[in-house]
């Protein structure tokens, strides 16, 4: 089963602590080695992106940034046996933020890929 995990948060005013980045790299390595993590990457601020909308038969392209309060920060794709495993890896990822960047708040959405 494949799961897409999308991390959402307000853009922080300060860069993430180097310890956190090191811990995230380590966790990513563990998850990759175990065969669970099959793809992941960070996402640039929405200012670098665009939205394409279809409404009443009209297609509009709007450059970022988007108005949403939260930005998409990163994505990860896990190949696991059960939803609980994707949730467990995501828990570990969030615990690193809790322990190493206490002021940070955000949410990760775990979605099953068809």
């Amino acid at each position: 089963m494949r799961y897409l995990v999308l991390l959402k948060a307000s853009r922080a005013s300060t860069p993430p602590p180097p310890d956190l980045m090191a811990a995230i790299m380590k966790l990513g390595e563990d998850a990759t080695r175990s065969g669970a993590l099959v793809d992941t990457a960070g996402l640039l601020p929405s200012a670098a992106g665009a939205t394409v909308t279809l409404h009443d038969g009209k297609i509009d392209v709007t450059d970022g940034p988007f108005a949403e309060a939260k930005e998409m920060i990163s994505y990860a794709i896990y190949d696991v046996r059960a939803k609980e495993e994707a949730v467990e890896w995501t828990n570990r990822f969030m615990k690193l933020h809790r322990d190493l960047w206490p002021s940070w708040a955000g949410e990760a959405v775990v979605l099953q890929v068809m």
Binding site: S34, V80, A82, E84, E85, V87, E88, W89
Partner: peptide
């Protein structure tokens, strides 16, 4: 959830 941790 316990089983998921176990498998990991």
């Amino acid at each position: 959830a316990v089983e998921a941790v176990w498998r990991i």
